[in-house]
Amino acid sequence: MMPIMQNVKGGGTGMGHSRAQKQANHDRILAAAVDLLRCQGLDHTGIAEVMRAAGLTHGGFYSHFERREAMVEEALTDAFAADEARLTKAASRSDKDRRVAMIEAYLSPLHRDNPARGCTAAALAGDVARADDGVRRIFTEQLERYRDLIAGLIPTGPEAARSHALFGISAMIGALLLSRAVDDETLSDDILDAARHHLTERI
């Protein structure tokens, strides 16, 4: 009986290792997809490029996802969760008012200069407007989460707080996009400075 038990144990360990490796590869694919989506957009990020960035073969993709859209939707979900966690952490680490801390962290040169680690909503808003229903649903739900998160920090009635939050989100994303689009560094900094100044006064 002992040799049989050893074989069973060994087989179980092997299967556990296989599952762990598959999950690790899955995570690598998603991480690569998130970076590429933020930098290149929805339309310019293909399966082959993602798998190459993840250090895996193109053929292995379909053991993880049935179609490209499934990868994109899962990558977006992960990206938004990471974005929200970073924004919340930035606010909680500061001695300033949490609203001010969020605005300053978002509208910073560091954020502007690192799109691969930056706001997914800003990187993909234009593409999402032309995307399929699944992607737009994920984007919409996350925008609502941001609205509620920021509204919860504004000491007014719920309706006014949500309105202020939506204004703030729109202004921050717009300012970040413009600061990245211009080729004049001074103007780019001025856009961020102006948005920070007016938002901290109004929200």
Score class of each variant (00 low, 15 high):
51 M>R: 09
99 R>W: 00
200 T>S: 04
45 T>K: 13
185 E>T: 07
141 E>S: 13
8 V>Q: 15
128 V>I: 07
106 Y>C: 05
76 L>N: 13
47 I>K: 15
154 I>F: 13
64 H>R: 09
12 G>N: 15
33 A>T: 06
91 A>I: 00
89 K>I: 03
128 V>D: 08
167 F>P: 01
201 E>M: 02
167 F>G: 10
153 L>K: 11
158 P>S: 13
68 R>E: 10
78 D>Y: 07
18 S>E: 09
72 V>R: 13
146 Y>S: 08
182 V>A: 14
111 H>L: 04
37 L>K: 07
138 I>Q: 09
15 M>G: 08
62 Y>V: 04
11 G>V: 12
158 P>C: 11
109 P>R: 07
3 P>C: 09
22 K>C: 02
115 P>F: 01
83 D>T: 07
11 G>Y: 13
139 F>P: 07
143 L>C: 05
193 D>T: 03
106 Y>N: 03
19 R>D: 02
44 H>E: 11
37 L>R: 04
98 R>N: 03
4 I>N: 15
85 A>D: 14
202 R>H: 03
84 E>W: 06
10 G>T: 11
86 R>S: 12
188 S>R: 04
14 G>Q: 13
157 G>I: 11
8 V>S: 15
189 D>H: 02
25 N>D: 07
79 A>F: 05
191 I>A: 09
165 A>G: 08
25 N>H: 05
22 K>G: 02
118 G>L: 01
59 G>V: 03
40 Q>T: 06
161 A>C: 14
179 S>T: 01
63 S>G: 07
17 H>L: 08
130 R>G: 04
129 A>W: 07
12 G>P: 03
40 Q>M: 12
49 E>P: 06
36 L>C: 07
143 L>N: 05
181 A>R: 14
8 V>N: 11
104 E>H: 05
101 A>N: 02
145 R>W: 01
46 G>D: 12
89 K>Q: 15
135 V>S: 04
125 A>H: 12
43 D>L: 15
24 A>Y: 04
154 I>G: 13
67 R>T: 06
177 L>D: 01
23 Q>N: 12
126 G>P: 07
87 L>S: 12
